[in-house]
Write a protein that binds this DNA or RNA. Structure first.
Lengths: 222, 222
DNA sequence: GGGCGAGGGAGTGTATACGAGAATGGTGGG
DNA sequence: CCCACCATTCTCGTATACACTCCCTCGCCC
Protein backbone atom coordinates (compact mmCIF):
# COMPACT_ATOMS: atom_id res chain seq x y z
CA UNK A 1 0.00 0.00 0.00
CA UNK A 2 1.99 2.88 1.34
CA UNK A 3 5.23 1.14 0.44
CA UNK A 4 5.81 3.60 -2.36
CA UNK A 5 9.55 3.64 -2.29
CA UNK A 6 10.36 1.77 0.89
CA UNK A 7 13.09 -0.38 -0.53
CA UNK A 8 14.51 -2.90 1.87
CA UNK A 9 14.20 -1.93 5.51
CA UNK A 10 10.79 -1.84 7.07
CA UNK A 11 10.98 -2.50 10.81
CA UNK A 12 13.16 0.41 11.81
CA UNK A 13 10.92 2.72 9.84
CA UNK A 14 7.87 1.12 11.41
CA UNK A 15 9.15 1.94 14.88
CA UNK A 16 9.61 5.57 13.96
CA UNK A 17 6.25 5.75 12.25
CA UNK A 18 4.22 4.20 15.02
CA UNK A 19 6.03 6.20 17.68
CA UNK A 20 5.37 9.43 15.84
CA UNK A 21 1.74 8.52 15.39
CA UNK A 22 1.47 7.89 19.11
CA UNK A 23 3.18 11.18 19.93
CA UNK A 24 1.05 13.07 17.44
CA UNK A 25 -2.05 11.64 19.02
CA UNK A 26 -3.19 9.58 16.05
CA UNK A 27 -3.41 6.72 18.50
CA UNK A 28 -5.00 7.85 21.73
CA UNK A 29 -3.87 6.66 25.18
CA UNK A 30 -5.62 3.45 26.11
CA UNK A 31 -6.36 2.60 22.51
CA UNK A 32 -5.77 -0.92 21.36
CA UNK A 33 -3.35 -1.40 18.49
CA UNK A 34 -3.95 -4.47 16.37
CA UNK A 35 -1.05 -5.85 14.43
CA UNK A 36 -3.12 -6.37 11.32
CA UNK A 37 -4.30 -2.78 11.24
CA UNK A 38 -0.77 -1.43 11.64
CA UNK A 39 0.53 -3.86 9.04
CA UNK A 40 -2.07 -2.67 6.55
CA UNK A 41 -1.40 0.96 7.45
CA UNK A 42 2.25 0.64 6.57
CA UNK A 43 1.98 -1.88 3.78
CA UNK A 44 4.12 -4.51 5.46
CA UNK A 45 3.56 -7.86 7.09
CA UNK A 46 2.85 -8.48 10.74
CA UNK A 47 6.40 -9.54 11.54
CA UNK A 48 8.03 -6.08 11.30
CA UNK A 49 5.03 -4.62 13.10
CA UNK A 50 5.47 -7.05 15.97
CA UNK A 51 9.12 -6.14 16.29
CA UNK A 52 8.26 -2.46 16.26
CA UNK A 53 5.67 -2.95 18.97
CA UNK A 54 8.12 -4.82 21.15
CA UNK A 55 10.57 -1.97 20.83
CA UNK A 56 7.91 0.56 21.71
CA UNK A 57 7.00 -1.54 24.70
CA UNK A 58 10.61 -1.48 25.85
CA UNK A 59 10.59 2.27 25.40
CA UNK A 60 7.43 2.59 27.45
CA UNK A 61 5.00 3.90 24.87
CA UNK A 62 2.76 0.88 24.79
CA UNK A 63 1.88 -1.96 27.10
CA UNK A 64 1.49 -5.51 25.85
CA UNK A 65 -0.71 -8.11 27.46
CA UNK A 66 0.06 -11.67 26.39
CA UNK A 67 -2.47 -13.17 24.02
CA UNK A 68 -4.56 -10.01 24.29
CA UNK A 69 -2.86 -7.18 22.50
CA UNK A 70 -0.91 -3.97 22.89
CA UNK A 71 -2.40 -0.76 24.23
CA UNK A 72 -1.11 2.80 24.12
CA UNK A 73 -0.03 3.65 27.63
CA UNK A 74 -1.83 6.27 29.68
CA UNK A 75 0.47 8.61 31.55
CA UNK A 76 -0.73 9.84 34.88
CA UNK A 77 0.02 13.40 35.89
CA UNK A 78 2.47 12.08 38.46
CA UNK A 79 4.38 10.15 35.84
CA UNK A 80 4.51 13.14 33.55
CA UNK A 81 6.07 15.11 36.38
CA UNK A 82 8.55 12.32 36.99
CA UNK A 83 9.62 12.51 33.38
CA UNK A 84 10.13 16.23 33.63
CA UNK A 85 12.04 15.94 36.88
CA UNK A 86 14.16 13.19 35.43
CA UNK A 87 15.05 15.39 32.52
CA UNK A 88 15.79 18.28 34.82
CA UNK A 89 18.67 16.35 36.35
CA UNK A 90 19.92 14.49 33.30
CA UNK A 91 19.96 17.22 30.71
CA UNK A 92 22.30 19.60 32.53
CA UNK A 93 24.75 16.76 32.91
CA UNK A 94 24.44 16.16 29.23
CA UNK A 95 24.83 19.81 28.30
CA UNK A 96 28.09 20.09 30.20
CA UNK A 97 29.58 17.27 28.17
CA UNK A 98 28.14 18.61 24.94
CA UNK A 99 29.79 21.98 25.46
CA UNK A 100 33.15 20.21 25.50
CA UNK A 101 32.61 17.60 22.82
CA UNK A 102 30.27 19.13 20.24
CA UNK A 103 31.43 19.09 16.63
CA UNK A 104 30.93 21.95 14.15
CA UNK A 105 28.54 19.74 12.22
CA UNK A 106 26.37 19.27 15.30
CA UNK A 107 26.42 23.00 15.98
CA UNK A 108 25.21 23.50 12.43
CA UNK A 109 22.31 21.15 12.94
CA UNK A 110 21.38 22.90 16.18
CA UNK A 111 21.39 26.24 14.41
CA UNK A 112 19.15 24.87 11.71
CA UNK A 113 16.75 23.45 14.27
CA UNK A 114 16.57 26.74 16.13
CA UNK A 115 15.81 28.45 12.83
CA UNK A 116 13.14 25.92 11.93
CA UNK A 117 11.66 26.17 15.41
CA UNK A 118 11.37 29.94 15.17
CA UNK A 119 9.74 29.69 11.78
CA UNK A 120 7.24 27.12 13.01
CA UNK A 121 6.34 29.24 16.02
CA UNK A 122 6.03 32.40 13.91
CA UNK A 123 3.85 30.75 11.29
CA UNK A 124 1.62 29.15 13.88
CA UNK A 125 2.48 25.60 12.85
CA UNK A 126 2.43 24.53 16.47
CA UNK A 127 1.91 20.88 15.73
CA UNK A 128 5.48 20.72 14.42
CA UNK A 129 7.03 22.29 17.49
CA UNK A 130 7.17 19.29 19.84
CA UNK A 131 9.01 17.26 17.24
CA UNK A 132 11.55 20.01 16.61
CA UNK A 133 11.89 20.44 20.34
CA UNK A 134 12.69 16.77 20.75
CA UNK A 135 15.25 16.85 18.01
CA UNK A 136 16.98 19.86 19.52
CA UNK A 137 17.44 18.02 22.77
CA UNK A 138 18.39 14.82 21.00
CA UNK A 139 21.18 16.53 19.10
CA UNK A 140 22.51 17.90 22.37
CA UNK A 141 22.43 14.37 23.72
CA UNK A 142 24.31 13.18 20.69
CA UNK A 143 26.83 16.00 21.07
CA UNK A 144 27.58 14.83 24.60
CA UNK A 145 29.56 12.05 22.97
CA UNK A 146 28.17 9.36 25.24
CA UNK A 147 26.27 6.69 23.41
CA UNK A 148 24.63 5.44 26.59
CA UNK A 149 23.65 8.88 27.77
CA UNK A 150 22.41 9.78 24.33
CA UNK A 151 20.12 6.80 24.11
CA UNK A 152 18.63 7.54 27.52
CA UNK A 153 18.01 11.18 26.69
CA UNK A 154 16.59 10.25 23.35
CA UNK A 155 13.91 8.05 24.86
CA UNK A 156 13.23 10.53 27.58
CA UNK A 157 12.96 13.39 25.15
CA UNK A 158 10.49 11.55 22.98
CA UNK A 159 8.29 10.80 25.95
CA UNK A 160 8.43 14.42 27.04
CA UNK A 161 7.30 15.41 23.57
CA UNK A 162 4.44 13.00 23.98
CA UNK A 163 3.44 14.51 27.31
CA UNK A 164 3.40 17.96 25.80
CA UNK A 165 1.68 16.98 22.57
CA UNK A 166 -1.07 15.05 24.29
CA UNK A 167 -2.03 18.17 26.19
CA UNK A 168 -1.34 21.16 24.05
CA UNK A 169 1.48 23.21 22.67
CA UNK A 170 2.42 26.36 24.39
CA UNK A 171 5.23 28.43 25.75
CA UNK A 172 6.66 27.95 22.27
CA UNK A 173 8.16 31.42 21.81
CA UNK A 174 9.98 31.53 25.13
CA UNK A 175 11.19 28.00 24.66
CA UNK A 176 12.88 28.72 21.36
CA UNK A 177 14.40 31.92 22.63
CA UNK A 178 16.01 29.84 25.37
CA UNK A 179 17.14 27.27 22.82
CA UNK A 180 18.98 30.05 21.05
CA UNK A 181 20.84 31.02 24.21
CA UNK A 182 21.80 27.41 24.90
CA UNK A 183 23.13 27.13 21.40
CA UNK A 184 25.28 30.21 21.96
CA UNK A 185 26.79 28.72 25.10
CA UNK A 186 27.50 25.46 23.34
CA UNK A 187 29.07 27.34 20.48
CA UNK A 188 31.33 29.18 22.89
CA UNK A 189 32.26 25.95 24.62
CA UNK A 190 31.07 27.33 27.95
CA UNK A 191 30.13 24.18 29.88
CA UNK A 192 28.97 25.89 33.06
CA UNK A 193 26.76 28.34 31.25
CA UNK A 194 25.29 25.65 28.98
CA UNK A 195 24.51 23.47 31.94
CA UNK A 196 22.95 26.33 33.91
CA UNK A 197 20.86 27.54 30.99
CA UNK A 198 19.53 24.09 30.27
CA UNK A 199 18.62 23.59 33.90
CA UNK A 200 16.73 26.86 33.86
CA UNK A 201 15.09 25.91 30.58
CA UNK A 202 13.79 22.62 31.94
CA UNK A 203 12.62 24.25 35.13
CA UNK A 204 10.56 26.79 33.23
CA UNK A 205 9.10 24.11 30.97
CA UNK A 206 8.12 22.10 34.03
CA UNK A 207 6.53 25.08 35.70
CA UNK A 208 4.59 25.95 32.58
CA UNK A 209 3.41 22.40 32.23
CA UNK A 210 2.21 22.25 35.81
CA UNK A 211 0.38 25.52 35.57
CA UNK A 212 -1.39 24.35 32.45
CA UNK A 213 -2.38 21.03 33.94
CA UNK A 214 -3.68 22.72 37.10
CA UNK A 215 -5.81 25.24 35.26
CA UNK A 216 -7.17 22.89 32.64
CA UNK A 217 -8.23 19.93 34.71
CA UNK A 218 -7.17 17.43 37.31
CA UNK A 219 -7.43 14.57 34.85
CA UNK A 220 -4.75 12.18 33.75
CA UNK A 221 -2.83 13.67 30.86
CA UNK A 222 -4.78 11.55 28.44
CA UNK B 1 12.82 -29.09 19.75
CA UNK B 2 13.75 -28.66 23.37
CA UNK B 3 10.27 -27.55 24.37
CA UNK B 4 10.65 -29.31 27.67
CA UNK B 5 8.07 -27.55 29.77
CA UNK B 6 7.83 -24.04 28.41
CA UNK B 7 5.44 -24.48 25.53
CA UNK B 8 3.40 -21.31 25.86
CA UNK B 9 5.50 -18.19 26.42
CA UNK B 10 8.78 -17.75 24.67
CA UNK B 11 9.69 -14.22 23.63
CA UNK B 12 9.54 -12.44 26.95
CA UNK B 13 11.58 -15.24 28.47
CA UNK B 14 14.00 -15.02 25.58
CA UNK B 15 14.69 -11.37 26.33
CA UNK B 16 15.48 -12.18 29.94
CA UNK B 17 17.60 -15.15 29.00
CA UNK B 18 19.72 -13.41 26.39
CA UNK B 19 20.12 -10.33 28.56
CA UNK B 20 21.28 -12.41 31.48
CA UNK B 21 23.70 -14.27 29.29
CA UNK B 22 25.12 -10.98 28.12
CA UNK B 23 25.40 -9.67 31.67
CA UNK B 24 26.94 -12.90 32.90
CA UNK B 25 29.53 -12.68 30.16
CA UNK B 26 28.45 -15.77 28.26
CA UNK B 27 28.44 -13.51 25.23
CA UNK B 28 31.49 -11.28 25.21
CA UNK B 29 31.41 -7.64 24.11
CA UNK B 30 31.92 -7.38 20.38
CA UNK B 31 30.75 -10.92 19.81
CA UNK B 32 28.37 -11.59 16.97
CA UNK B 33 25.05 -13.18 17.88
CA UNK B 34 23.39 -15.20 15.16
CA UNK B 35 19.65 -15.69 15.38
CA UNK B 36 19.90 -19.36 14.52
CA UNK B 37 22.35 -20.07 17.31
CA UNK B 38 20.19 -18.28 19.87
CA UNK B 39 17.07 -20.01 18.56
CA UNK B 40 18.73 -23.39 18.95
CA UNK B 41 20.12 -22.46 22.37
CA UNK B 42 16.69 -21.65 23.70
CA UNK B 43 14.74 -24.20 21.71
CA UNK B 44 12.50 -21.74 19.90
CA UNK B 45 12.18 -20.37 16.41
CA UNK B 46 13.92 -17.31 15.05
CA UNK B 47 10.87 -15.08 15.39
CA UNK B 48 10.89 -14.75 19.20
CA UNK B 49 14.66 -14.41 19.07
CA UNK B 50 14.41 -11.54 16.62
CA UNK B 51 11.92 -9.76 18.83
CA UNK B 52 14.16 -10.28 21.83
CA UNK B 53 17.15 -8.88 19.97
CA UNK B 54 15.22 -5.80 18.92
CA UNK B 55 14.28 -5.17 22.52
CA UNK B 56 17.87 -5.61 23.65
CA UNK B 57 18.92 -3.20 20.94
CA UNK B 58 16.45 -0.63 22.25
CA UNK B 59 17.85 -1.20 25.71
CA UNK B 60 21.38 -0.67 24.48
CA UNK B 61 22.88 -4.09 25.09
CA UNK B 62 23.43 -4.98 21.46
CA UNK B 63 23.90 -3.15 18.21
CA UNK B 64 22.23 -4.33 15.02
CA UNK B 65 23.56 -3.74 11.52
CA UNK B 66 21.04 -4.34 8.74
CA UNK B 67 21.61 -7.54 6.80
CA UNK B 68 24.70 -8.22 8.85
CA UNK B 69 23.73 -9.16 12.36
CA UNK B 70 23.67 -8.06 15.94
CA UNK B 71 26.77 -7.58 18.05
CA UNK B 72 27.15 -7.26 21.78
CA UNK B 73 28.01 -3.66 22.51
CA UNK B 74 31.35 -2.67 23.92
CA UNK B 75 31.16 -0.14 26.70
CA UNK B 76 33.99 2.33 26.94
CA UNK B 77 35.23 3.38 30.35
CA UNK B 78 33.70 6.81 29.79
CA UNK B 79 30.29 5.32 29.11
CA UNK B 80 30.52 3.13 32.18
CA UNK B 81 31.18 6.24 34.25
CA UNK B 82 28.25 8.00 32.60
CA UNK B 83 26.00 5.14 33.66
CA UNK B 84 27.22 5.37 37.23
CA UNK B 85 26.82 9.13 37.32
CA UNK B 86 23.36 8.83 35.84
CA UNK B 87 22.40 6.41 38.53
CA UNK B 88 23.88 8.64 41.20
CA UNK B 89 21.32 11.34 40.39
CA UNK B 90 18.32 9.18 39.56
CA UNK B 91 18.39 6.67 42.38
CA UNK B 92 18.16 9.12 45.28
CA UNK B 93 15.13 10.66 43.60
CA UNK B 94 13.69 7.19 43.37
CA UNK B 95 14.49 6.28 46.96
CA UNK B 96 12.67 9.33 48.30
CA UNK B 97 9.49 8.24 46.54
CA UNK B 98 9.95 4.63 47.57
CA UNK B 99 10.14 5.58 51.25
CA UNK B 100 6.67 7.09 50.94
CA UNK B 101 5.01 4.57 48.66
CA UNK B 102 6.55 1.19 49.47
CA UNK B 103 4.15 -1.63 50.31
CA UNK B 104 4.76 -4.24 53.01
CA UNK B 105 5.06 -6.85 50.28
CA UNK B 106 7.87 -4.89 48.64
CA UNK B 107 9.61 -4.47 51.97
CA UNK B 108 9.42 -8.22 52.37
CA UNK B 109 11.04 -8.80 49.02
CA UNK B 110 13.79 -6.33 49.87
CA UNK B 111 14.44 -8.15 53.14
CA UNK B 112 14.66 -11.43 51.32
CA UNK B 113 17.08 -9.99 48.78
CA UNK B 114 19.31 -8.58 51.52
CA UNK B 115 19.31 -11.99 53.15
CA UNK B 116 20.13 -13.75 49.89
CA UNK B 117 22.82 -11.20 49.15
CA UNK B 118 24.50 -11.75 52.50
CA UNK B 119 24.41 -15.50 52.01
CA UNK B 120 25.92 -15.24 48.55
CA UNK B 121 28.70 -13.00 49.79
CA UNK B 122 29.40 -15.22 52.80
CA UNK B 123 29.50 -18.39 50.72
CA UNK B 124 31.70 -16.85 48.08
CA UNK B 125 29.14 -17.24 45.29
CA UNK B 126 30.19 -13.91 43.89
CA UNK B 127 28.82 -14.61 40.42
CA UNK B 128 25.31 -14.32 41.84
CA UNK B 129 25.89 -10.98 43.51
CA UNK B 130 25.46 -8.61 40.55
CA UNK B 131 22.09 -10.11 39.74
CA UNK B 132 20.88 -9.80 43.32
CA UNK B 133 22.25 -6.29 43.40
CA UNK B 134 20.26 -5.37 40.32
CA UNK B 135 17.09 -6.83 41.74
CA UNK B 136 17.49 -4.92 44.99
CA UNK B 137 17.65 -1.67 43.10
CA UNK B 138 14.87 -2.71 40.77
CA UNK B 139 12.52 -3.39 43.65
CA UNK B 140 13.28 0.05 45.03
CA UNK B 141 12.44 1.45 41.62
CA UNK B 142 9.20 -0.48 41.64
CA UNK B 143 8.42 0.75 45.12
CA UNK B 144 8.73 4.32 43.95
CA UNK B 145 5.32 3.84 42.40
CA UNK B 146 6.25 5.52 39.16
CA UNK B 147 5.99 3.21 36.19
CA UNK B 148 8.07 5.50 34.02
CA UNK B 149 10.76 5.99 36.62
CA UNK B 150 10.80 2.29 37.36
CA UNK B 151 11.37 1.33 33.79
CA UNK B 152 14.25 3.78 33.44
CA UNK B 153 15.92 2.58 36.61
CA UNK B 154 15.39 -0.99 35.63
CA UNK B 155 17.28 -0.61 32.37
CA UNK B 156 19.94 1.46 34.02
CA UNK B 157 20.37 -1.02 36.83
CA UNK B 158 20.79 -3.90 34.45
CA UNK B 159 23.45 -2.07 32.52
CA UNK B 160 25.27 -1.22 35.73
CA UNK B 161 25.23 -4.89 36.63
CA UNK B 162 26.74 -5.57 33.25
CA UNK B 163 29.50 -3.04 33.80
CA UNK B 164 30.37 -4.61 37.11
CA UNK B 165 30.09 -8.19 35.96
CA UNK B 166 32.20 -7.71 32.88
CA UNK B 167 35.03 -6.45 35.04
CA UNK B 168 34.90 -8.26 38.32
CA UNK B 169 32.89 -8.54 41.50
CA UNK B 170 34.05 -6.80 44.60
CA UNK B 171 33.10 -4.55 47.44
CA UNK B 172 30.36 -7.08 47.98
CA UNK B 173 30.32 -7.08 51.81
CA UNK B 174 30.17 -3.31 52.22
CA UNK B 175 27.56 -3.07 49.52
CA UNK B 176 25.16 -5.42 51.22
CA UNK B 177 25.69 -3.83 54.60
CA UNK B 178 24.60 -0.57 53.00
CA UNK B 179 21.64 -2.27 51.38
CA UNK B 180 20.54 -3.31 54.84
CA UNK B 181 20.65 0.28 56.10
CA UNK B 182 18.68 1.50 53.10
CA UNK B 183 16.08 -1.13 53.76
CA UNK B 184 15.78 0.09 57.35
CA UNK B 185 15.18 3.66 56.21
CA UNK B 186 12.56 2.51 53.72
CA UNK B 187 10.92 0.44 56.38
CA UNK B 188 10.74 3.45 58.65
CA UNK B 189 9.35 5.59 55.86
CA UNK B 190 12.19 8.07 56.27
CA UNK B 191 12.46 9.62 52.80
CA UNK B 192 15.35 11.96 53.52
CA UNK B 193 17.46 9.28 55.12
CA UNK B 194 16.69 6.75 52.37
CA UNK B 195 17.62 9.27 49.72
CA UNK B 196 20.81 10.25 51.49
CA UNK B 197 21.89 6.68 52.13
CA UNK B 198 21.29 5.68 48.54
CA UNK B 199 23.27 8.64 47.28
CA UNK B 200 26.14 7.65 49.54
CA UNK B 201 25.84 4.05 48.43
CA UNK B 202 26.10 4.93 44.77
CA UNK B 203 28.98 7.28 45.41
CA UNK B 204 30.95 4.56 47.15
CA UNK B 205 30.20 2.07 44.41
CA UNK B 206 31.38 4.56 41.82
CA UNK B 207 34.57 5.27 43.70
CA UNK B 208 35.30 1.59 44.12
CA UNK B 209 34.69 1.00 40.44
CA UNK B 210 37.03 3.78 39.42
CA UNK B 211 39.78 2.62 41.74
CA UNK B 212 39.54 -0.87 40.34
CA UNK B 213 39.61 0.28 36.75
CA UNK B 214 42.60 2.51 37.42
CA UNK B 215 44.63 -0.18 39.11
CA UNK B 216 43.79 -2.99 36.76
CA UNK B 217 44.30 -1.41 33.38
CA UNK B 218 43.46 1.52 31.15
CA UNK B 219 41.59 -0.65 28.70
CA UNK B 220 37.97 -0.44 27.68
CA UNK B 221 35.81 -2.38 30.09
CA UNK B 222 35.56 -5.20 27.61
C1' DG C 1 -35.77 -14.34 34.41
C1' DG C 2 -31.03 -14.70 35.66
C1' DG C 3 -26.79 -17.08 35.90
C1' DC C 4 -23.61 -20.39 34.01
C1' DG C 5 -21.22 -23.06 30.55
C1' DA C 6 -20.06 -24.23 25.87
C1' DG C 7 -19.02 -22.76 21.16
C1' DG C 8 -17.45 -19.53 17.67
C1' DG C 9 -14.86 -15.55 16.16
C1' DA C 10 -10.98 -12.59 16.50
C1' DG C 11 -6.20 -11.82 17.28
C1' DT C 12 -1.94 -12.98 19.16
C1' DG C 13 2.16 -16.38 19.33
C1' DT C 14 5.00 -19.33 16.72
C1' DA C 15 6.96 -22.03 13.07
C1' DT C 16 8.27 -22.78 8.33
C1' DA C 17 9.59 -21.15 3.74
C1' DC C 18 11.49 -18.09 0.56
C1' DG C 19 13.91 -13.85 -1.21
C1' DA C 20 17.58 -10.16 -0.64
C1' DG C 21 21.88 -8.42 0.76
C1' DA C 22 26.58 -8.72 2.39
C1' DA C 23 30.93 -11.07 3.69
C1' DT C 24 34.23 -14.44 1.92
C1' DG C 25 36.92 -17.24 -0.88
C1' DG C 26 38.72 -18.38 -5.29
C1' DT C 27 40.23 -17.22 -9.81
C1' DG C 28 41.98 -14.63 -13.47
C1' DG C 29 44.43 -10.74 -15.14
C1' DG C 30 47.90 -7.11 -14.58
C1' DC D 1 53.23 -11.36 -6.48
C1' DC D 2 49.33 -8.50 -5.73
C1' DC D 3 44.96 -6.67 -6.75
C1' DA D 4 40.36 -6.71 -8.58
C1' DC D 5 36.29 -9.06 -9.85
C1' DC D 6 32.90 -12.60 -9.52
C1' DA D 7 30.40 -16.42 -7.62
C1' DT D 8 29.23 -18.96 -3.54
C1' DT D 9 27.37 -19.14 0.90
C1' DC D 10 25.84 -17.64 5.08
C1' DT D 11 22.66 -14.80 7.48
C1' DC D 12 19.25 -11.51 7.85
C1' DG D 13 14.56 -9.70 6.37
C1' DT D 14 9.87 -10.68 5.14
C1' DA D 15 5.81 -13.08 3.95
C1' DT D 16 2.65 -16.87 4.53
C1' DA D 17 0.42 -20.45 7.26
C1' DC D 18 -1.09 -22.65 11.41
C1' DA D 19 -1.90 -23.39 16.61
C1' DC D 20 -3.29 -21.57 20.80
C1' DT D 21 -5.63 -18.24 23.91
C1' DC D 22 -9.00 -14.88 25.10
C1' DC D 23 -13.45 -12.82 24.79
C1' DC D 24 -18.08 -12.57 23.56
C1' DT D 25 -22.35 -14.47 22.50
C1' DC D 26 -25.86 -17.77 22.44
C1' DG D 27 -28.21 -21.48 24.44
C1' DC D 28 -29.39 -24.25 28.35
C1' DC D 29 -30.54 -25.18 33.00
C1' DC D 30 -31.85 -23.75 37.53
Amino acid sequence: MAGDKGPRRAPQEAVRAVREDIIRGVFAPGERLTEDALAARYGVSRVPVREALRVLEAEGFVEAKPYVGVFVRELSEAEAEDLLELRSVIEPMCAARAARNRTPEQLGRLKELVSLGWDAVRDGRLEEVPRLNSRFHEVIAEASGSEVLGQMIRQLSQKIAWVYAVGLTLRAEDSWREHEEILAALSAGDADRASALLGQHILRATTAYRRRVRTEAGDPIG
